[in-house]
């Protein structure tokens, strides 16, 4: 899938999305990251063919849909979960899935099998005949995501899918998305919570004010932007209190403390050069602090985002 100079204006006076170029390879998970109002939902709706671009085009398998029939045919291959998570609360999960399966024109036999599979995959079998109003928020969210997979789409688009999911649900979602990718489905997912995406996505694109500011493989992006952040992890055998005092005297900020591989560890922000770092380490030795290791911590996607973004996100 390829977004070519994609732009969207709702009122002709301002761009909600502009000049967006993005290539999404088949069988990959691509994350769209950005703060609220950056244009993620607008972009995903256009990819899902339910919103027309004001400018540019989107090619699927190298072909740009032009007619209503093209869009209709394309939608059969797309599963789209928009924002807002609307659900018919008076229907049971089985009825809800049947309804959407019929909206995708599945025949009765295929639909029945697909419903059973989704209910099993998303652990909803025991609640299949309970009205949605009585389901927990996490169950509802699982049902919504399951609805998108009912017709076995080639492209799965999820806008903020982790809303309402507990840690276990998020973990399950990652597992499911990995399985979906393995089955050959391309996944386009958006979130403003970076930690949810950095180790799930093959590629990410960061949106700011309607434009893509960074795009590529997660590792490449971190490598490209891994500058300016100097955090060192110091593992100590003993002398933690002394070390903390000495570090404070050298204007080093202790970001966090913990235990790494059985030893107490300090994450230290060090803004000065490495010679000064060596001096500081020598002071530690001189004061009886036994340092096991001292290593620079590699930046995370969140750090990169913080560096390049104008708006801080979660």
């Amino acid at each position: 899938m390829e977004l070519r100079r994609l732009g969207k204006s709702y009122d002709g006076s301002a761009w909600a999305l502009r000049e967006v170029d993005l290539k999404v390879a088949s069988r990959t998970i691509v994350g769209l990251i950005g703060p609220n109002g950056a244009g993620k939902s607008t972009a995903l709706r256009m990819v899902a063919t339910i919103m027309e671009p004001s400018h540019g085009e989107i090619a699927y398998d190298g072909r740009v849909p032009r007619t209503v029939a093209d869009h209709q045919e394309l939608r059969r291959q797309i599963g789209f979960l928009g924002d807002g998570n609307p659900l018919y609360k008076h229907m049971t999960p089985r009825e809800y899935l049947r309804f959407f399966g019929q909206c995708f024109c599945l025949d009765d036999r295929t639909l029945a099998a697909a419903i059973d599979e989704v209910l099993t995959t998303f652990a909803l079998t025991s609640k299949a005949d309970t009205v949605c109003a009585q389901l927990s928020k996490g169950m509802r969210q699982r049902l919504l995501i399951g609805r998108c997979l009912l017709h076995q789409p080639r492209l799965l688009i999820l806008d903020e899918p982790t809303d309402g999911l507990d840690p276990r649900g998020r973990s399950d979602l990652r597992r499911i998305l990995t399985e979906v990718r393995a089955r050959g489905t391309t996944v386009l997912i958006s979130s403003h919570i970076l930690r949810e995406l950095d180790d799930l996505c093959d590629e990410v694109a960061i949106l700011q004010r309607g434009a893509i500011v960074v795009c590529g493989k997660v590792g490449d992006i971190i490598d490209r932007h891994d500058v300016g952040r100097f955090v060192y992890q110091i593992r100590l055998i003993d002398g933690v209190e002394t070390a903390r005092t000495i570090l404070a005297g050298h204007h080093a900020l202790v970001e966090s403390e913990g235990v790494v591989d059985g030893l107490p560890a300090l994450a230290v922000q060090w803004q000065r050069d490495e010679a000064a770092l060596a001096d500081m380490l020598q002071r530690l030795f001189e004061n009886g602090v036994r340092v096991a290791t001292c290593a620079r911590v590699r930046s995370r996607l969140e750090d990169v985002y913080d560096r390049i973004s104008e708006d801080r996100v979660n």
Partner: peptide, 9 residues
């Protein structure tokens, strides 16, 4: 929303 139309694509 976003930016002005001053720089159309």
């Amino acid at each position: 929303v976003a930016t002005s139309m001053a720089s159309p694509p």
